[in-house]
Design a protein around this nucleic acid. Structure first.
Lengths: 144, 144
DNA sequence: CGGGATCCCGTGGGATACTG
DNA sequence: CAGTATCCCACGGGATCCCG
């Protein structure tokens, strides 16, 4: 599970320049990795929730994200922490308490992400309708 | 916008109202599906490319999206077409020519998506640095 | 040229059980 | 409470061949 296999250095030395021209369309480009990470099942929801609530505990997140397993929540949180998007704070108490919140970097992701979730709720009706229309046409073609 | 799809009743009754309060945090909510779709490996890149270029042929898309297989490109395009985000136009010629472009609905997705890809390229350096720092710490802890 | 149909493998991710 | 450790299956997704 622990592999630093694709160290950035080996990717054509891209990571040396201070200002770079990352191209997500190019295979192996780290900026594509970021899109992929955002793409995984829980990342957007975790970030969205932390953006809204400011700070949240592990269990509270688990309750909020309907259907997430402990494994996936932990895994997602770790990945986000590693990427510098969230901060994990352990309070040495009994019982233990762990708080998660966005970092400054993570906060910069807030706008695009909120825009995205807003889009998904705002245009859901149209998407649903488009699907129904597409399926109707397809079914009609299948019978003719 | 004023479209009330007749379909969504089967979804646990949460879709009764025309103006709905889709909640991506709730399991089984269609708006979560949309986030999931955006999350798959090629969707964002396809939409981004069509947004930039206006219209593109199958093969041109294939060349642009480094590493995509025919199967995945086709599959992604079909899904996007079904969701009403892109339009597929077949020109009855020999050899065949097929053009893809954003629909009006798809265009509304452009802003949030562009914002997202911009973020990924703009903050790549910081993410990479955060990763390196995280790994260094972890390694140090492992040796002590 | 623009796909559809198959085959097949890696891994994303859920269920369950255990620990500090 | 907040995780880690396994097991295991479904499916995402690549490779290959074929077809109008």
């Amino acid at each position: 599970m622990e592999s630093k296999a694709t160290a950035p250095e080996e990717i054509t030395g891209m990571a040396k320049a201070p200002r770079t021209d990352w191209d997500p369309y190019a295979g192996g480009c780290p900026s594509r990795e970021v899109l992929d990470r955002i793409g995984d099942k829980w990342t957007v929801l975790v970030l969205g929730e932390l953006a809204e609530s400011g700070s949240k505990r592990y269990t509270a997140l688990r309750r909020k994200l309907d259907g997430v397993s402990e494994k996936m929540l932990t895994q997602t949180l770790r990945a986000l922490e590693r990427d510098g998007l969230i901060r994990r704070t352990v309070h040495p108490e009994i019982p233990p308490r762990v708080e998660y919140e966005l970092t400054a970097l993570g906060t910069t992701l807030r706008e695009p992400l909120v825009a995205l979730t807003n889009w998904s709720t705002r245009h859901m009706d149209e998407v649903l309708e488009a699907r129904a229309a597409y399926d109707r046409e397809k079914d009609a073609a299948a019978e003719g």
